[in-house]
C-alpha cells in the first residue's frame, strides 16, 4: 500500500436521494496505467470530481501521495500533484494555447499572485510552454492564435497540454478522445502513449480499443459502485462485465 499515489476508501456521493458514487475504494500505484470504464451514468465523471475536490464527498476518504486530502479544496489538491482533463473542453476561448499553457505553468510555479513583473520577463515560462506544445505536435501558427478558432482536435490536444503543464504525479484523463474524428485522434492517442512513466494515469474512457491498448489494470463502475477490477484479460472475460457493459456496447 505504501506505493499507492492515489487511493480512495469508501468514497461516496449522494445527490439528494440518488447515490451517484457508492463506496468506491480504488488504488493507483506509482506509474499506474489504470482505466475506469462503465456504462453511461455509472458515476465516472462524478468520481473524478470527487478526486479533484470539485465536488465534496458525502462519505469516505481520498488519499493523495499518502496524505488524506479529503478536506482540502481543489486548488490545494492540484498543488500536491493531481491534474485532470475534462470530458467537455474547458478552455480559454480568448487566449492562445501558448498563453493558456503559460498560465498553467505560472500557476504550477506559484507565480499567479505575482503582479510586479510582466509575464514576458519570465522567459523560462514561455520557453517551456513552447516546448510542451511542440512536443505535442501543435503547429506553431495554431499555438499563437486564439483557442476559439482552432479545430476541435487541436482543442482536445490543448486540454491535455494544460494538464501536462502542471507536471502532475497523478493524471486523470476524462475521455480524452471524446468527439474527435479518427483523422484527428492520432496526436491525442500518441500523446497519451508518450506520457512519462513516472506519472500515474487514470483513464476514464468509452473507447474499448483505447482502453485495452493502454490500460494495465481496469476497474468497472456500474450504478456508482465497483463491479469488477483486474487485468484487462480478466475483465474482458468477466461475464458480469459483459452483461453490464460490454454487452451493452455490443448491442449498440
Amino acid at each position: 500500500m505504501s506505493t499507492a499515489v492515489l487511493e480512495t476508501d469508501g468514497l461516496t456521493r449522494h445527490f439528494g436521494g440518488f447515490t451517484a458514487v457508492d463506496k468506491v475504494s480504488l488504488s493507483l500505484s506509482a506509474g499506474a496505467r489504470h482505466a475506469l470504464i462503465g456504462p453511461n451514468g455509472a458515476g465516472k465523471t462524478t468520481f473524478v470530481n470527487l478526486l479533484t475536490g470539485a465536488l465534496s464527498a458525502s462519505a469516505g476518504t481520498v488519499r493523495l501521495l499518502g496524505q488524506d486530502v479529503t478536506a482540502l479544496p481543489q486548488h490545494k489538491r492540484i498543488k500536491r500533484g493531481l491534474a485532470r482533463t475534462f470530458q467537455i473542453n474547458q478552455l480559454f476561448a480568448e487566449l492562445t494555447p501558448l498563453e493558456a499553457v503559460s498560465l498553467a505553468i505560472a500557476e504550477r510555479e506559484g507565480l499567479s499572485a505575482r503582479w510586479w513583473k510582466p509575464l514576458s520577463a519570465h522567459a523560462a515560462i514561455a520557453a517551456e510552454a513552447r516546448a510542451l506544445l511542440d512536443g505535442l505536435r501543435m503547429p506553431a501558427a495554431d499555438a499563437a492564435s486564439a483557442t476559439a478558432g482552432l479545430p476541435y482536435g487541436r482543442q482536445r490536444l490543448l486540454e491535455i497540454a494544460l494538464a501536462l503543464a502542471l507536471k502532475p504525479r497523478v493524471l486523470l484523463l476524462d475521455e480524452p478522445a471524446a468527439g474527435v474524428p479518427p483523422s484527428e485522434s492520432r496526436e491525442i492517442l500518441d500523446s497519451i502513449a508518450a506520457l512519462p512513466r513516472e506519472v500515474a494515469v487514470l483513464l476514464i474512457e468509452h473507447d474499448m480499443d483505447l482502453v485495452f491498448r493502454f490500460a494495465e489494470r481496469i476497474t468497472v463502475l456500474a450504478q456508482g459502485a465497483i463491479l469488477a477490477e483486474g487485468e484487462p484479460a480478466a475483465i474482458a472475460a468477466d461475464p458480469r462485465v459483459k452483461e453490464a457493459y460490454l454487452g451493452e456496447a455490443a448491442h449498440g
Binding site: L91, L103, W116, L119
Partner: peptide, 15 residues
Amino acid sequence: VSSPFGLALRGIKGN
C-alpha cells in the same frame, strides 16, 4: 494586467 497575476485574472474570466 501583463503580469502572471493579470493573466490569471483573464483566465478566471475565460473559464
